[in-house]
Design a protein around this nucleic acid. Structure first.
Lengths: 336, 336
DNA sequence: ACACAACTTGGAAATGTTTCCAGTAAACTG
DNA sequence: CAGTTTACTGGAAACATTTCCAAGTTGTGT
């Protein structure tokens, strides 16, 4: 039932070494030979045994992904980007959703688990809070994604710039300007400064445009739709129309859209809204949003780590991703 | 640097077979020998290589844990119970937080991942919705925890009974009775009926006690503190004091406590509250709660699965856990 | 046509466990 | 006390890969 590399070799009429080389994308295999081996593997439905590979190779070919899985679309997309890219390099990924301090410590102290991964991808984590020197107590290569750390390769989005984009788009319109930010839960291990950065950029660019944002026009909600709607209601019922709102996350912007609909306000004319994320559903909803290439960021982080695992040992690299504004109906005058 | 079983054997003056037997808790090792080997391992700081074990044993010694990681305390505790018990049996655990349908399908179809686990623990999942026959398309042993399935070993809490306990405790008090339930997000892959069951049991027992619960006295909130507070506010500001409230989750009960404090109502006299879960912090807060032994449920599920992996092949087993009421200040008259 | 380098290839060795098979020693049995 | 279980134990074989080395093949420059 279980096929081995031996049987593939026999069927393809080559040696086991060659099959292994095909499996690992070694350059020194004649294209024609490679094809023959691949055909044999496909035909037989051969799947290599990862455990044997690990013992022979002396590595685990596994990467730990440490994140705060709060079930948001952002992390789901990030994960998809990470896993997909790791897979192409034949790395497995092990997930460590670190809800709570106890768990992160347990993971880092466990000799069993440490054995199992060759590197770590850490998402959205400000290590400074947990470890004064900003370093994880491990020798494994570490890559930070959706965050910035001076000791490790980092992949980050320029959230501030994203806020600026939103400001430039809204400042030209008639009407008051509001912003809704998102606050993090107090006891989170993960420090999430991204929302603050977005709002900061927004404020700065408005200031520059000569339309400074009033402090009273900034509200902060926790990350869920219900609260977003409450904040939106508060704004929409106590201001003059038209009004322009920047939401620090698409989910929050959705709350504004829903509340506007309930109040029979026309989005794009009475209420203009810009979200942040540009999640797939934003297009359907006609929501203008600051786009961030989440999957690509995951992929970039994966590449950075694989690179380290393949021997690269230079200084920490920083990969900056730049958001861009995707304009849709929610910031356009409707022509009817 | 990396130690092997060989070196341990040499140091302890035994054969490699014996060291392996000690590692795997085989019965046929003289206690004295076992001790000598263990001493050698400790002294050298030996950690067995899990990959070699997997290739030699022909198994992955890994269990997949499929759950909806929404970052709640319940799942964190469940995970702790599962992992701890699996560890004692030398099984590793791989987490699959399945947010969204795409991901569950991907996992189940992936030949790579399937290769890697010997069994599956599935939490809180009503398979019937995803697969008409209620079965996962896999040959691996499956155990359901915090749920019930006729085809697989299941570990569940009698949520209905928990609701009844709460009803019996509250029905004796003076004042109106309210209940706050929790609703799940529409598009969840995981069907969560536990909250409904709790409320059902609550209703039934009240009925029996001759104090049927009014439909208008039941509200439903999404699972977060902010919403719980809003629901609590709604109740507390529109009813007569004293009032008795059953919250289908501790987190929701916490919202009631906070709102009561804000309104200067005395908990235990003006407002009586019973939560559900009895999470560790409930004690500090003086919250009466229906206790469920989450860690023990995780441990039980792990044992069931390990049992199957060790060859047991009988009919599906059902392990019922019974909640119990832990009475604290929130349902006692304060004597001052 | 020859020397030499570059590319391919086969297969043995190595990886670190578990498992199985003898073999020895100790413990009963009558 | 001989005969027979029973309880331990050592070590070789097996597991399915990767890696390395030697050998063969092809190509290049003169």
């Amino acid at each position: 039932m279980k096929l081995t590399i031996q049987e593939v070799a026999q069927k393809a009429g080559v040696g086991v070494g060659t099959v292994s080389r095909v499996l690992n994308n070694h350059k020194s295999v004649r294209p024609e030979t490679r094809e023959r081996v691949q055909a044999a593997m496909n035909e037989m439905g051969f799947v290599p045994n990862p455990h044997a590979r690990r013992v022979a190779g002396g590595k685990s070919y596994t990467v730990s992904i440490i994140l705060q899985v709060i079930g948001t679309e952002f992390y789901l997309r990030l994960l998809n980007g990470l896993e997909k890219t790791l897979e192409t390099h034949r790395y497995d990924s092990a997930l460590f959703p670190l809800i709570g301090r106890e768990r992160i410590e347990r993971y880092l102290n466990s000799s069993t688990l440490a054995y199992q991964s060759d590197g770590i991808v850490m998402a959205t984590h400000n290590l400074g809070e947990l470890y004064p020197d900003g370093k994880l107590p491990t020798r494994q290569p570490v890559v930070i994604v959706d965050g910035l750390n001076e000791h490790y390769d980092s992949v980050y989005l320029d959230n501030r710039f994203g806020g600026e984009l939103a400001a430039r788009a809204l400042s030209g319109f008639e009407g008051e300007i509001y912003a809704i930010s998102v606050h993090q839960d107090i006891d989170e291990v993960f420090a999430k400064t991204v929302f603050d950065e977005r709002i900061e950029g927004f404020k700065a660019a408005l200031e520059e445009a000569g339309k400074p944002l009033l402090e009273s026009h900034v509200s902060t909600v926790s990350f869920n739709l219900d609260n977003a709607r409450i904040a939106a209601k508060e704004i929409l019922e106590n201001t003059t129309i038209p009004v322009n709102i920047f939401a620090a996350a698409d989910l929050v912007a959705l709350g504004v859209l829903e509340e506007a609909a309930r109040l029979n306000l026309e989005v794009g004319r009475d209420v203009r809204v810009i979200g942040f994320d540009d999640h797939p559903w934003s297009a359907e909803r006609g929501l203008t949003s600051v786009h961030q290439p989440v999957e690509a960021m995951g992929a970039a982080a994966a590449e950075l780590l694989v690179d380290r695992l393949s021997g690269y040992d230079g200084a920490p690299r920083k990969v900056r991703f730049e958001p861009r504004l995707v304009e849709r109906a929610s910031t356009l005058h409707s022509e009817d």
